[in-house]
Design a binder for these strands. Structure first.
Length: 479
RNA sequence: GCCCCCAUCGUCUAGAGGCCUAGGACACAGCCCUUUCAAGGCUGCGGCGGGGAUUCGAAUUCCCCUGGGGGCACCA
């Protein structure tokens, strides 16, 4: 009726929202936002065996987290069975669909036989020409029929796909697929068509694994007398082995990335780049994405998902985070790691965020970067060997203890740095020879957040305690 | 077996006949900065799958081959 853009994301709730689904949702969302259109969420729950409520929640949670807000829905296909039945009856009445009494077992047998003969496994239409008496016989045996679509066997069906271009299919290759199962639940190819029509969908944007389903749907649109929407089939997302991305390739659930400490804006930005590009640009804000996105610019070829690039990008977005926000985002990770997050005051966590921000590539990394603040030092043997056991280390540490014990010293990183640099001058050693032993003494390892800030955050008492402990450790080793 | 799609650095991509000596990003390597690790800066490594055709000229157009992917369910 109008030419507004109406698109939908239509996942089947048989599992969590995965990377591929998220990308499809994103492109639909971007397209809708770009044109000021409507984005609809539709749950395709006609597979009663595999659909779960938990999956629906996971999908909704993931999309909300990603910021992909829908304007209508979520709608469920199982809520409108009557509507499908209505259209089935219509087709039945028009002779465009027919009842089929073949049992799943028989069909399976014939499919195998066809495959064995190296033939295309298509339905042989034996129920299309059932005589009234045969039909009665089937009914008498109590077989519940499925409804098959009487597919045209001549002519061609042309899809003008926005991303793939013109794709031609010969109708003779389509078979009489099942529209309605024996239990009255519609199958995918039928339900999508009715729904996309009923919801007045203008553009069907989905993965290109559906491209070969499209002619089946188009002939159905025609049989039902519906207008055919525009199609845009997005390239697949592949794993490193170039096969379709799946659990085999490790984390694919959006929720898993959220839990690992990826930021939604990073995931969105990364996903946008899978199958789409805009000049030389790599980093995009959501507004830029909405503004610059177009289906015409979507590429045709499949893309390999690269976790390394995602992680890099996540680091970029973490560095852009306001410090308050980062502070709050970090806390759950510390808590989940069993670290006592009430151990320090709020200002302390904020400072921790400041000194770790540019080192974080995932929020979960905060644990490894700061765990030594929360419990006794665990000295890495290698660090002890390489740094603490070096000649001069004990003497240095003793001097450091002396300096830090001085109550005249205000315990702030800047003051600490000034005094310790003074020490470096005094002993005439390379800075590294002084600072590394301190680092190992108070953190137990050779790698840590910036030293002076770390000392400050640890506090005078704990720092001195750890320096003493390190000295003790060296003595023990010597003896 | 049948049908369909795809093909630029290792990966994501820019490129819509001369602007390409093929650009950017990630990854990798080196250097610089530096108390470690990062971050940042600089440099380097690295690609148009093959063959024909069209054209004065092809990464860009056409055909074939090869290679990859997807589909062929009472799954979606």
């Amino acid at each position: 009726m109008d030419n507004r853009v109406r698109v939908r994301f239509a996942p089947s709730p048989t599992g969590y929202l995965h990377i591929g689904g998220a990308r499809t949702a994103l492109f639909n969302w971007l397209y809708a936002r770009h044109y000021g259109g409507v984005f609809i969420l539709r749950i395709e729950d006609t597979d009663r065996e595999r659909s779960t409520e938990a999956a629906i929640h996971a999908i909704i949670n993931s999309m909300s987290w990603l910021g992909l807000a829908w304007d209508e829905g979520p709608f469920r296909q199982m809520d409108k069975l009557d509507r499908y039945h209505e259209e089935v009856e219509r087709l039945l009445g028009e002779g465009k669909a027919y009842k089929c009494y073949c049992t799943p077992e028989e069909l399976e047998e014939r499919r195998k036989a066809a495959l064995a003969r190296k033939e295309a496994p298509r339905y042989d239409r034996r129920c299309l020409t059932l005589t009234p008496s045969e039909l009665q016989a089937c009914e008498a045996r109590g077989i519940k029929p499925v409804i098959r679509f009487h597919s045209p066997d001549e002519g061609i069906t042309v899809i003008n796909d926005i991303v793939k271009g013109e794709v031609v299919f010969e109708n003779k290759n389509l078979d009489d697929f099942v529209m309605l199962r024996a239990d009255g639940v519609p199958t995918y190819n039928f339900a999508v068509v009715v729904d996309d029509h009923d919801m007045d969908i203008s553009h069907v944007i989905r993965g290109d694994d559906h491209l070969s389903n499209t002619p089946r749907q188009v002939v159905l649109y025609q049989a039902l007398g519906y207008d055919v929407p525009e199609f845009a089939h997005l390239p697949m997302i592949l794993g490193p082995d170039k096969t379709r991305l799946s659990k085999r390739h490790g984390a694919t659930a959006v929720e898993a990335y959220r839990d690992e400490g990826y930021l939604p804006q990073a995931l969105i930005n990364y996903l946008a780049l899978l199958g789409w590009g805009y000049e030389d640009q790599t980093l995009f804000t959501q507004d830029e994405l909405v503004q610059k996105f177009s289906l015409e610019a979507v590429g045709k070829s499949a893309a390999v998902f690269d976790p390394a690039k995602l992680e890099w990008m996540n680091g970029v977005y973490i560095r852009e985070l306001p410090i308050e926000e980062l502070t709050e985002l970090m806390k759950p990770y510390l808590r989940n790691a069993g670290l006592p997050i009430e151990m320090y005051e709020d200002a302390w966590y904020r400072r921790l965020a400041e000194i770790t921000q540019e080192r974080l590539t995932k929020l979960s990394n905060i644990v490894g970067l700061s765990d030594f603040f929360f419990h006794r030092v665990q000295y890495e043997p290698q660090a002890v060997q390489k740094v603490l056991k070096k000649e001069g280390a004990p003497e240095t540490l003793e001097k450091v203890m002396e300096i830090l014990s001085d109550n005249a010293l205000e315990f702030y990183s800047y003051e600490i740095e000034k005094r310790l640099r003074g020490l470096v001058e005094e002993v005439g050693l390379k800075a590294k020879m002084v600072f590394q032993p301190i680092r190992v003494a108070i953190t137990g390892r050779t790698v840590s957040p910036p030293l002076f800030e770390t000392i400050e955050l640890l506090g005078r008492e704990a720092t001195l305690e750890r320096l003493g402990e390190a000295l003790h450790l060296i003595e023990l080793a010597d003896g």
